[in-house]
Design a protein around this nucleic acid. Structure first.
Lengths: 190, 190
DNA sequence: GTCTATACACGGATAGAC
DNA sequence: GTCTATCCGTGTATAGAC
Protein backbone atom coordinates (compact mmCIF):
# COMPACT_ATOMS: atom_id res chain seq x y z
CA UNK A 1 0.00 0.00 0.00
CA UNK A 2 2.78 2.38 0.78
CA UNK A 3 6.15 2.95 -0.76
CA UNK A 4 8.19 5.90 0.37
CA UNK A 5 5.44 6.29 2.92
CA UNK A 6 3.12 7.64 0.30
CA UNK A 7 0.18 5.74 -1.16
CA UNK A 8 -0.03 5.04 -4.85
CA UNK A 9 -3.20 7.06 -5.27
CA UNK A 10 -1.40 9.92 -3.59
CA UNK A 11 1.49 9.67 -6.02
CA UNK A 12 -0.93 9.55 -8.91
CA UNK A 13 -2.64 12.74 -7.79
CA UNK A 14 0.66 14.54 -7.27
CA UNK A 15 2.01 13.46 -10.65
CA UNK A 16 -1.18 14.60 -12.29
CA UNK A 17 -0.98 17.98 -10.56
CA UNK A 18 2.53 18.50 -11.86
CA UNK A 19 1.64 17.49 -15.39
CA UNK A 20 -1.52 19.57 -15.48
CA UNK A 21 0.54 22.55 -14.45
CA UNK A 22 3.25 21.88 -17.03
CA UNK A 23 1.19 20.64 -19.96
CA UNK A 24 -2.49 21.25 -19.24
CA UNK A 25 -5.26 18.70 -19.47
CA UNK A 26 -5.19 17.93 -23.18
CA UNK A 27 -1.40 17.73 -23.06
CA UNK A 28 -1.36 15.21 -20.24
CA UNK A 29 -1.72 11.49 -20.96
CA UNK A 30 -2.43 8.72 -18.49
CA UNK A 31 0.77 7.11 -19.67
CA UNK A 32 2.84 10.13 -18.68
CA UNK A 33 1.11 10.23 -15.31
CA UNK A 34 1.83 6.58 -14.65
CA UNK A 35 5.46 6.89 -15.61
CA UNK A 36 5.94 9.86 -13.32
CA UNK A 37 4.13 8.16 -10.48
CA UNK A 38 5.94 4.87 -11.00
CA UNK A 39 2.67 2.99 -11.20
CA UNK A 40 1.02 0.66 -13.68
CA UNK A 41 -2.23 1.03 -15.60
CA UNK A 42 -4.11 -1.12 -13.15
CA UNK A 43 -3.41 1.15 -10.20
CA UNK A 44 -4.80 4.18 -11.88
CA UNK A 45 -8.01 2.51 -12.96
CA UNK A 46 -8.38 0.91 -9.58
CA UNK A 47 -8.28 4.22 -7.71
CA UNK A 48 -9.92 6.43 -10.31
CA UNK A 49 -12.59 6.03 -12.93
CA UNK A 50 -10.30 7.41 -15.63
CA UNK A 51 -8.36 10.44 -16.69
CA UNK A 52 -11.14 12.99 -16.00
CA UNK A 53 -11.72 11.58 -12.53
CA UNK A 54 -8.05 11.68 -11.63
CA UNK A 55 -7.71 15.15 -13.08
CA UNK A 56 -10.65 16.31 -11.00
CA UNK A 57 -8.97 15.11 -7.81
CA UNK A 58 -5.76 16.84 -8.84
CA UNK A 59 -7.46 20.09 -9.79
CA UNK A 60 -9.44 20.17 -6.55
CA UNK A 61 -6.30 19.82 -4.51
CA UNK A 62 -4.41 22.45 -6.46
CA UNK A 63 -7.33 24.84 -6.13
CA UNK A 64 -7.56 24.34 -2.39
CA UNK A 65 -3.85 24.84 -1.97
CA UNK A 66 -3.93 28.06 -3.96
CA UNK A 67 -6.84 29.40 -1.95
CA UNK A 68 -4.99 28.67 1.27
CA UNK A 69 -1.80 30.34 0.06
CA UNK A 70 -3.67 33.43 -1.06
CA UNK A 71 -5.63 33.70 2.14
CA UNK A 72 -2.39 33.43 4.06
CA UNK A 73 -1.23 36.65 2.44
CA UNK A 74 -4.54 38.50 2.12
CA UNK A 75 -5.49 37.71 5.71
CA UNK A 76 -2.10 38.82 7.01
CA UNK A 77 -1.20 41.99 8.87
CA UNK A 78 -1.11 45.45 7.38
CA UNK A 79 -3.37 48.04 5.83
CA UNK A 80 -5.68 47.05 2.98
CA UNK A 81 -3.20 48.46 0.45
CA UNK A 82 -0.35 46.58 2.06
CA UNK A 83 -2.23 43.30 1.98
CA UNK A 84 -3.07 43.69 -1.71
CA UNK A 85 0.51 44.68 -2.35
CA UNK A 86 1.70 41.60 -0.49
CA UNK A 87 -0.59 39.44 -2.60
CA UNK A 88 0.70 40.95 -5.83
CA UNK A 89 4.33 40.75 -4.79
CA UNK A 90 4.23 37.32 -3.25
CA UNK A 91 6.80 34.89 -4.47
CA UNK A 92 5.74 33.12 -7.62
CA UNK A 93 7.27 30.79 -10.15
CA UNK A 94 6.18 33.19 -12.83
CA UNK A 95 7.34 31.26 -15.89
CA UNK A 96 5.41 28.18 -14.83
CA UNK A 97 2.19 30.17 -14.92
CA UNK A 98 -0.78 29.81 -12.59
CA UNK A 99 -1.65 26.17 -11.95
CA UNK A 100 -5.32 27.09 -11.71
CA UNK A 101 -5.66 29.91 -14.22
CA UNK A 102 -3.94 28.02 -17.02
CA UNK A 103 -6.72 25.46 -16.94
CA UNK A 104 -9.11 28.04 -18.35
CA UNK A 105 -7.27 27.75 -21.66
CA UNK A 106 -7.88 24.04 -21.77
CA UNK A 107 -10.81 23.21 -24.04
CA UNK A 108 -11.67 19.97 -22.28
CA UNK A 109 -11.66 21.64 -18.86
CA UNK A 110 -13.90 24.45 -20.07
CA UNK A 111 -16.20 21.92 -21.72
CA UNK A 112 -16.73 20.11 -18.43
CA UNK A 113 -18.70 21.85 -15.68
CA UNK A 114 -17.22 19.47 -13.17
CA UNK A 115 -13.60 20.21 -14.06
CA UNK A 116 -14.21 23.92 -14.42
CA UNK A 117 -16.04 24.25 -11.08
CA UNK A 118 -12.98 24.28 -8.77
CA UNK A 119 -11.30 26.79 -11.05
CA UNK A 120 -14.32 29.06 -11.07
CA UNK A 121 -14.80 28.78 -7.34
CA UNK A 122 -11.19 29.59 -6.56
CA UNK A 123 -11.18 32.70 -8.67
CA UNK A 124 -14.58 33.85 -7.47
CA UNK A 125 -13.63 33.47 -3.83
CA UNK A 126 -10.34 35.23 -4.33
CA UNK A 127 -12.08 38.06 -6.08
CA UNK A 128 -14.66 38.42 -3.33
CA UNK A 129 -11.94 38.43 -0.72
CA UNK A 130 -9.95 41.14 -2.46
CA UNK A 131 -13.11 43.18 -3.08
CA UNK A 132 -13.78 43.05 0.66
CA UNK A 133 -10.31 44.39 1.38
CA UNK A 134 -10.73 47.20 -1.12
CA UNK A 135 -14.02 48.21 0.49
CA UNK A 136 -12.29 48.18 3.84
CA UNK A 137 -9.64 50.48 2.40
CA UNK A 138 -12.29 52.82 1.12
CA UNK A 139 -13.86 53.08 4.58
CA UNK A 140 -10.46 53.91 6.01
CA UNK A 141 -9.94 56.57 3.38
CA UNK A 142 -7.01 54.69 1.87
CA UNK A 143 -8.74 54.21 -1.47
CA UNK A 144 -10.83 56.75 -3.37
CA UNK A 145 -14.55 56.38 -2.70
CA UNK A 146 -15.45 56.15 -6.37
CA UNK A 147 -13.56 52.90 -6.77
CA UNK A 148 -15.60 49.71 -6.95
CA UNK A 149 -14.26 46.87 -4.80
CA UNK A 150 -15.36 44.14 -7.19
CA UNK A 151 -13.90 45.90 -10.18
CA UNK A 152 -10.57 46.61 -8.55
CA UNK A 153 -10.43 43.03 -7.35
CA UNK A 154 -10.99 41.86 -10.92
CA UNK A 155 -8.19 44.16 -12.09
CA UNK A 156 -5.85 42.80 -9.47
CA UNK A 157 -6.53 39.19 -10.39
CA UNK A 158 -6.43 39.93 -14.10
CA UNK A 159 -3.08 41.67 -13.73
CA UNK A 160 -1.68 38.56 -12.12
CA UNK A 161 -3.18 36.14 -14.60
CA UNK A 162 -2.27 38.31 -17.54
CA UNK A 163 1.17 38.90 -16.11
CA UNK A 164 1.85 35.21 -16.52
CA UNK A 165 0.89 35.49 -20.17
CA UNK A 166 3.25 38.40 -20.81
CA UNK A 167 6.06 36.69 -18.96
CA UNK A 168 5.69 33.38 -20.77
CA UNK A 169 5.46 35.15 -24.12
CA UNK A 170 8.79 36.84 -23.53
CA UNK A 171 10.41 34.00 -21.66
CA UNK A 172 11.21 36.27 -18.72
CA UNK A 173 9.45 37.18 -15.47
CA UNK A 174 10.20 40.88 -16.04
CA UNK A 175 6.92 41.69 -17.75
CA UNK A 176 4.96 40.14 -14.89
CA UNK A 177 6.75 42.37 -12.44
CA UNK A 178 6.22 45.42 -14.62
CA UNK A 179 2.47 44.83 -14.79
CA UNK A 180 2.27 44.43 -11.04
CA UNK A 181 4.29 47.58 -10.41
CA UNK A 182 2.13 49.49 -12.86
CA UNK A 183 -1.03 48.48 -11.08
CA UNK A 184 0.43 49.25 -7.67
CA UNK A 185 1.50 52.71 -8.85
CA UNK A 186 -2.10 53.37 -9.86
CA UNK A 187 -3.52 51.95 -6.68
CA UNK A 188 -1.10 53.50 -4.19
CA UNK A 189 -2.66 55.85 -1.65
CA UNK A 190 -1.24 59.37 -1.58
CA UNK B 1 -5.89 24.77 -57.44
CA UNK B 2 -8.89 26.72 -56.33
CA UNK B 3 -12.24 25.69 -54.99
CA UNK B 4 -14.57 28.37 -53.70
CA UNK B 5 -11.96 30.72 -55.07
CA UNK B 6 -9.65 29.91 -52.18
CA UNK B 7 -6.54 27.81 -52.49
CA UNK B 8 -6.14 24.64 -50.47
CA UNK B 9 -3.14 25.94 -48.60
CA UNK B 10 -5.22 28.98 -47.71
CA UNK B 11 -8.00 26.81 -46.35
CA UNK B 12 -5.47 24.79 -44.37
CA UNK B 13 -4.08 27.90 -42.75
CA UNK B 14 -7.51 29.27 -41.90
CA UNK B 15 -8.67 25.96 -40.44
CA UNK B 16 -5.51 25.78 -38.37
CA UNK B 17 -6.03 29.31 -37.09
CA UNK B 18 -9.54 28.44 -35.94
CA UNK B 19 -8.45 25.26 -34.25
CA UNK B 20 -5.45 26.84 -32.56
CA UNK B 21 -7.79 29.45 -31.13
CA UNK B 22 -10.33 26.91 -29.96
CA UNK B 23 -8.10 24.09 -28.79
CA UNK B 24 -4.50 25.30 -28.73
CA UNK B 25 -1.54 23.60 -30.35
CA UNK B 26 -1.44 20.36 -28.39
CA UNK B 27 -5.20 20.03 -28.75
CA UNK B 28 -5.14 20.39 -32.52
CA UNK B 29 -4.45 17.39 -34.74
CA UNK B 30 -3.61 17.37 -38.43
CA UNK B 31 -6.62 15.14 -38.91
CA UNK B 32 -8.96 17.75 -37.44
CA UNK B 33 -7.38 20.44 -39.60
CA UNK B 34 -7.82 18.38 -42.75
CA UNK B 35 -11.43 17.61 -41.98
CA UNK B 36 -12.22 21.27 -41.39
CA UNK B 37 -10.39 22.34 -44.51
CA UNK B 38 -11.92 19.58 -46.60
CA UNK B 39 -8.51 18.41 -47.75
CA UNK B 40 -6.61 15.15 -47.70
CA UNK B 41 -3.36 14.21 -46.03
CA UNK B 42 -1.38 14.71 -49.21
CA UNK B 43 -2.33 18.36 -49.59
CA UNK B 44 -1.13 19.28 -46.18
CA UNK B 45 2.24 17.58 -46.53
CA UNK B 46 2.64 19.01 -49.99
CA UNK B 47 2.23 22.62 -48.85
CA UNK B 48 3.76 22.32 -45.40
CA UNK B 49 6.52 20.32 -43.81
CA UNK B 50 4.23 19.12 -41.03
CA UNK B 51 2.10 20.27 -38.16
CA UNK B 52 4.64 22.71 -36.68
CA UNK B 53 5.23 24.32 -40.07
CA UNK B 54 1.52 24.79 -40.74
CA UNK B 55 0.97 26.06 -37.22
CA UNK B 56 3.74 28.58 -37.70
CA UNK B 57 2.06 29.97 -40.80
CA UNK B 58 -1.25 30.15 -38.93
CA UNK B 59 0.24 31.79 -35.85
CA UNK B 60 2.09 34.36 -37.93
CA UNK B 61 -1.06 35.39 -39.70
CA UNK B 62 -3.09 35.59 -36.51
CA UNK B 63 -0.37 37.67 -34.89
CA UNK B 64 -0.23 40.11 -37.79
CA UNK B 65 -3.98 40.45 -37.83
CA UNK B 66 -4.08 41.20 -34.13
CA UNK B 67 -1.35 43.81 -34.42
CA UNK B 68 -3.27 45.51 -37.21
CA UNK B 69 -6.52 45.51 -35.25
CA UNK B 70 -4.84 46.92 -32.17
CA UNK B 71 -3.03 49.60 -34.09
CA UNK B 72 -6.32 50.57 -35.70
CA UNK B 73 -7.65 51.49 -32.27
CA UNK B 74 -4.48 52.76 -30.60
CA UNK B 75 -3.60 54.92 -33.61
CA UNK B 76 -7.10 56.36 -33.79
CA UNK B 77 -8.30 59.79 -32.76
CA UNK B 78 -8.62 61.06 -29.20
CA UNK B 79 -6.50 61.84 -26.18
CA UNK B 80 -4.05 59.26 -24.88
CA UNK B 81 -6.52 58.18 -22.22
CA UNK B 82 -9.27 57.86 -24.79
CA UNK B 83 -7.14 55.73 -27.06
CA UNK B 84 -6.22 53.37 -24.26
CA UNK B 85 -9.84 53.30 -23.21
CA UNK B 86 -10.85 52.48 -26.77
CA UNK B 87 -8.33 49.65 -26.82
CA UNK B 88 -9.62 48.22 -23.57
CA UNK B 89 -13.27 48.56 -24.54
CA UNK B 90 -12.96 47.38 -28.09
CA UNK B 91 -15.30 44.63 -29.12
CA UNK B 92 -13.98 41.21 -28.24
CA UNK B 93 -15.26 37.66 -28.28
CA UNK B 94 -14.25 37.41 -24.66
CA UNK B 95 -15.16 33.80 -24.00
CA UNK B 96 -13.03 32.62 -26.91
CA UNK B 97 -9.98 34.13 -25.29
CA UNK B 98 -7.08 35.82 -27.04
CA UNK B 99 -5.94 33.90 -30.13
CA UNK B 100 -2.37 34.98 -29.50
CA UNK B 101 -2.18 35.09 -25.71
CA UNK B 102 -3.65 31.61 -25.25
CA UNK B 103 -0.68 30.15 -27.08
CA UNK B 104 1.55 31.05 -24.15
CA UNK B 105 -0.16 28.29 -22.16
CA UNK B 106 0.75 25.74 -24.78
CA UNK B 107 3.81 23.74 -23.73
CA UNK B 108 4.84 22.89 -27.29
CA UNK B 109 4.59 26.52 -28.39
CA UNK B 110 6.66 27.71 -25.46
CA UNK B 111 9.19 24.97 -26.09
CA UNK B 112 9.76 26.18 -29.64
CA UNK B 113 11.49 29.51 -30.16
CA UNK B 114 10.12 29.64 -33.67
CA UNK B 115 6.50 29.21 -32.65
CA UNK B 116 6.84 31.52 -29.68
CA UNK B 117 8.51 34.32 -31.64
CA UNK B 118 5.39 35.79 -33.30
CA UNK B 119 3.59 35.70 -29.96
CA UNK B 120 6.43 37.45 -28.21
CA UNK B 121 6.81 40.04 -30.93
CA UNK B 122 3.11 40.87 -30.99
CA UNK B 123 2.94 41.44 -27.27
CA UNK B 124 6.20 43.35 -27.14
CA UNK B 125 5.17 45.70 -29.92
CA UNK B 126 1.77 46.26 -28.40
CA UNK B 127 3.35 47.03 -25.08
CA UNK B 128 5.80 49.50 -26.62
CA UNK B 129 3.00 51.20 -28.48
CA UNK B 130 0.86 51.61 -25.37
CA UNK B 131 3.88 52.78 -23.36
CA UNK B 132 4.43 55.47 -25.97
CA UNK B 133 0.84 56.63 -25.60
CA UNK B 134 1.12 56.76 -21.83
CA UNK B 135 4.27 58.86 -22.06
CA UNK B 136 2.43 61.16 -24.43
CA UNK B 137 -0.35 61.46 -21.87
CA UNK B 138 2.19 62.34 -19.19
CA UNK B 139 3.58 65.16 -21.31
CA UNK B 140 0.10 66.49 -21.80
CA UNK B 141 -0.53 66.35 -18.08
CA UNK B 142 -3.26 63.74 -18.51
CA UNK B 143 -1.40 61.11 -16.52
CA UNK B 144 0.55 61.61 -13.31
CA UNK B 145 4.27 62.11 -13.91
CA UNK B 146 5.30 59.35 -11.53
CA UNK B 147 3.69 56.70 -13.71
CA UNK B 148 5.97 54.58 -15.85
CA UNK B 149 4.80 54.12 -19.43
CA UNK B 150 6.17 50.60 -19.78
CA UNK B 151 4.70 49.49 -16.49
CA UNK B 152 1.26 50.92 -17.19
CA UNK B 153 1.36 49.35 -20.63
CA UNK B 154 2.13 45.99 -19.04
CA UNK B 155 -0.80 46.47 -16.65
CA UNK B 156 -3.11 47.30 -19.53
CA UNK B 157 -2.12 44.23 -21.51
CA UNK B 158 -2.16 42.01 -18.44
CA UNK B 159 -5.64 43.20 -17.53
CA UNK B 160 -6.87 42.18 -20.95
CA UNK B 161 -5.08 38.83 -20.98
CA UNK B 162 -6.08 38.09 -17.41
CA UNK B 163 -9.61 39.27 -18.08
CA UNK B 164 -9.98 36.41 -20.52
CA UNK B 165 -8.92 34.01 -17.79
CA UNK B 166 -11.47 35.33 -15.30
CA UNK B 167 -14.21 35.32 -17.91
CA UNK B 168 -13.53 31.79 -19.08
CA UNK B 169 -13.32 30.54 -15.51
CA UNK B 170 -16.80 31.87 -14.76
CA UNK B 171 -18.25 31.18 -18.18
CA UNK B 172 -19.31 34.81 -18.54
CA UNK B 173 -17.72 37.93 -20.03
CA UNK B 174 -18.75 39.98 -16.97
CA UNK B 175 -15.48 39.52 -15.10
CA UNK B 176 -13.50 40.70 -18.11
CA UNK B 177 -15.54 43.88 -18.23
CA UNK B 178 -15.17 44.41 -14.49
CA UNK B 179 -11.38 44.15 -14.69
CA UNK B 180 -11.28 46.64 -17.51
CA UNK B 181 -13.56 49.09 -15.72
CA UNK B 182 -11.47 48.74 -12.58
CA UNK B 183 -8.30 49.60 -14.42
CA UNK B 184 -9.93 52.51 -16.23
CA UNK B 185 -11.22 53.90 -12.94
CA UNK B 186 -7.65 53.90 -11.64
CA UNK B 187 -6.23 55.37 -14.81
CA UNK B 188 -8.85 58.05 -15.44
CA UNK B 189 -7.59 61.64 -15.37
CA UNK B 190 -9.34 63.91 -12.91
C1' DG C 1 -1.50 19.19 -56.31
C1' DT C 2 -4.42 15.99 -54.45
C1' DC C 3 -5.84 11.45 -53.25
C1' DT C 4 -5.69 6.85 -50.90
C1' DA C 5 -3.00 3.37 -48.60
C1' DT C 6 -0.06 2.25 -45.26
C1' DA C 7 2.80 2.55 -41.06
C1' DC C 8 3.61 2.66 -36.27
C1' DA C 9 3.54 4.78 -31.83
C1' DC C 10 0.45 6.76 -28.53
C1' DG C 11 -4.10 7.79 -26.00
C1' DG C 12 -7.37 5.91 -23.22
C1' DA C 13 -9.56 2.05 -21.41
C1' DT C 14 -10.74 -3.05 -20.16
C1' DA C 15 -9.68 -7.98 -18.62
C1' DG C 16 -7.91 -10.99 -15.91
C1' DA C 17 -3.75 -13.04 -13.47
C1' DC C 18 -1.33 -12.64 -9.15
C1' DG D 1 -4.05 -3.28 -5.07
C1' DT D 2 -1.00 -3.90 -8.58
C1' DC D 3 0.72 -5.92 -12.79
C1' DT D 4 0.73 -7.32 -17.69
C1' DA D 5 -1.79 -8.25 -21.82
C1' DT D 6 -4.83 -6.69 -25.01
C1' DC D 7 -7.92 -3.60 -27.53
C1' DC D 8 -9.27 -0.06 -30.82
C1' DG D 9 -9.11 4.53 -32.37
C1' DT D 10 -6.19 8.59 -33.15
C1' DG D 11 -1.83 11.36 -34.06
C1' DT D 12 1.61 12.22 -37.20
C1' DA D 13 4.02 11.05 -41.12
C1' DT D 14 5.53 8.63 -45.60
C1' DA D 15 4.72 6.32 -50.24
C1' DG D 16 3.10 6.19 -54.34
C1' DA D 17 -0.90 6.37 -57.69
C1' DC D 18 -3.44 9.68 -60.47
Amino acid sequence: MYSDGVSTSERLIESTRELLWERGYVGTSPKAILERAGAGQGSMYHHFKGKPDLALAAIRRTAEELRATAEGVLGGPGTPYERIEAYLLREREVLRGCPVGRLTMDPDVIASDELRAPVDETITRLRDRIAEIVEEGKEQGQFAPHLDGGEIAASVLATVQGGYVLARASGSPAAFDAGVRGLLSLLAPR
